[in-house]
C-alpha cells in the first residue's frame, strides 16, 4: 500500500465519521454541518456569488500584503545576510518585534490607517515579512565560501555576485519562507477580518456564527482549507520550476 493510498483512506474515514455523526443524529446539525451539506452550501453560496465576493476580498488583501512582504523580506534578508554591518544594525530591531503577534499590531494599524483595506494589508505585511526575511538570511548565509570565491575568480562584480550567485543559491530557502508566509497570511487575514471588516472570509464566518447559519460557517472553513492547500501546492510547483536543481531531503 503506498503512502498516497493510506492518506486517502485516512481522509475518507474522517469524512465518513463526520457524515455519519450528523446523519444518525449523534450530533445536532445546528452544531455540526455534514460534509455533503457543507458542499451543497458552498454550491449555493457560489451560485449567489456571495462566496466569490468574500474570497476575492480576502485574497486581494493577502496578495497585496504578501507581495510587499516578499519584496521587502528578500531585499532586507539578503542585505542582512551579505553585509555584516546591516545585520548588526537591523537584527536587534527584528528580534524586538518578532515575538509581537500581528494581531497585537492590528488595533494599532486600525488607529493609524483606519478600518479600510490598508490596515489589513499592513498586518499581512507585518506577519509575512519575518519568515521570508529570516529564510532569505539563512539562504544567503549558507552560500559556501568556495562558491563565492569561484565566482570572484571568474570575474563576478558585487552586483553580479548578489544577483547571479547569492540570490540563486538562496532561492530554495526563499521559497520555503514564501510557503510559510502564505500559511501565516491566511491565518492572519481571517482574524483581522473578524475584528474589522465588512467583507472577507473572516467576516463571513463570524457573521454566520452570530446569526446561527452553521452551514455558512462550515462552508467558510472548508473554503479556507481549500485555498491554503491549493496555494501551498502552487508554491511548491513554483519552487520546482524555479529550482529544478534543488533536492529536498525527507519530503516528497
Amino acid at each position: 500500500m503506498t503512502a498516497k493510498i493510506r492518506g486517502l483512506i485516512s481522509i475518507l474515514v474522517f469524512l465518513a465519521i463526520w457524515e455519519g455523526a450528523v446523519r444518525f443524529h449523534l450530533v445536532e446539525n445546528f452544531v455540526l454541518t455534514s460534509p455533503s451539506e457543507t458542499l451543497r452550501q458552498i454550491g449555493h453560496l457560489l451560485s449567489t456569488g456571495e462566496l466569490q465576493t468574500h474570497v476575492k476580498a480576502s485574497m486581494l488583501r493577502i496578495v497585496l500584503g504578501y507581495s510587499i512582504a516578499l519584496v521587502l523580506g528578500v531585499v532586507i534578508g539578503t542585505l542582512m545576510g551579505w553585509f555584516r554591518v546591516v545585520d548588526d544594525y537591523v537584527d536587534p530591531i527584528i528580534e524586538m518585534f518578532r515575538p509581537v503577534s500581528p494581531l497585537a499590531i492590528l488595533p494599532l494599524a486600525i488607529l493609524w490607517l483606519g478600518i479600510g483595506q490598508s490596515s489589513k494589508v499592513f498586518v499581512i505585511v507585518y506577519a509575512c515579512i519575518f519568515p521570508i526575511m529570516l529564510n532569505t538570511y539563512a539562504g544567503v548565509r549558507s552560500v559556501p565560501r568556495s562558491v563565492v570565491e569561484a565566482a570572484r575568480i571568474l570575474g563576478a562584480k558585487s552586483d553580479e555576485m548578489l544577483l547571479k550567485v547569492v540570490f540563486q543559491n538562496s532561492l530554495p530557502l526563499i521559497m520555503t519562507g514564501a510557503r510559510i508566509s502564505f500559511a501565516v497570511a491566511l491565518i492572519v487575514i481571517i482574524a483581522a477580518e473578524m475584528v474589522a471588516a465588512d467583507t472577507g472570509l473572516g467576516y463571513m464566518i463570524l457573521t454566520a456564527q452570530q446569526t446561527f447559519h452553521t452551514a455558512d460557517l462550515f462552508a467558510g472553513i472548508v473554503t479556507i482549507a481549500v485555498i491554503g492547500f491549493v496555494g501551498d501546492r502552487l508554491l511548491r510547483l513554483l519552487r520546482a520550476r524555479l529550482c529544478p536543481w534543488y533536492v529536498e531531503s525527507g519530503e516528497h
Binding site: V147, E149, A150, I153, G155, Q168, N169, C243, Y246
Partner: peptide, 20 residues
Amino acid sequence: GPGPDRAMVFQDYALFPWCN
C-alpha cells in the same frame, strides 16, 4: 585581487549547484 587570468580549481569543486 582575484581575476579570471588566474583561474582556480577547488578541492570541493565549488560548482554552482543551480547551474547545469
